[in-house]
Amino acid sequence: MKPLLSVRNLSTRFDTFDGSVYAVNDVSFDLKAGETLAVVGESGSGKSVTMLSLLGLLPRSTWVTGSAIFAPEGFELDLLSVSKAELNSLRGNKISIIFQDALRSLNPVMTVGEQITESLITHHQYNKNGAHKRAVELLEMVGIAQPDKRYYAYPHMFSGGMRQRAMIAIAISCTPDILIADEPTTALDVTIQAQIVELTRRLQQDLGIAVIWITHDLGVVAGLADRVMVMYGGTGVEIAPVDLLYENPGHPYTAGLLGAIPSIAGSSADRLVSIEGAPPDLFQEPRHCQFAWRCRYVFDRCWKEKPPGYIISPGQVVKCFYDGREKTPRVEE
């Protein structure tokens, strides 16, 4: 079956006064209808920028190349080459996004209810009354008590968890095909995090939405994702089904990340492993493996060219010249 979204060689560059920032470099991935893809990586690894590039939400002095074929039922188009108007008709309608900081992401001077009605009126030709009724239903769906009263509340009157629920209500209002969740639980405390994750999963199952969940928390990923893309230095270094990734990480960076998760079962004598060094300088155009500076398996080829994607098991693609299983550099076939 054709993937719902097929991103190929996506690169994003910002031009700043200090020079060009190579924020995303050659990212490729597929998203199937209804599945959850987690995108994991440290701050500055290009997770958010990748998604904002797809939606055309980046500032003017940004260069995006590559392709992103979006193929829901009935039509097919490239998100990176459609007209602005066409893209705008997809945003909030077929593809929605929720952000990390719900307080700052909601308009402070508009009622929560009205903010939910906006997409409905824009994309689905609801009238004011119909949109109002639907917004109250949506508030109830995302678990906000007294939805008909809360419709008239302003964002600052909500708690952090409620605001994120309201954001979700906005995002799912038009029943999109894809929901991009850009670290939606990072600003929340742990119990609320779990509730939001649970809510998203429930809605996803009920509505059949594909979810791209951006996070730097591998703990969240395990319980949520079908597949995982690990990003480093602006590129997707590994993509794998979630259990395969945890059992048998193919990229030294993934292995490093997994080694840095504290385990409640481990003995206190086990020290958490940290990855030596700092993230790469994004002002340099990448000409070799971005992880080479910090990699313990680095050898001369890593400094000469960018590793292509190697399929090491079904569904597992790794961009690394080192074969962890054979404990040798990879041999080209």
């Binding site: 705008n88 008709s89 308009n107 906006e118 997409s119």
Partner: peptide, 19 residues
């Protein structure tokens, strides 16, 4: 951020501008 949200909702330019 809320302006980015507004754009991510696919709202019309005029509405983002005024509201």
């Amino acid at each position: 951020d809320y302006v980015t949200t507004a754009r991510s909702k696919g709202l019309k330019k005029k509405r983002i501008y005024f509201k």
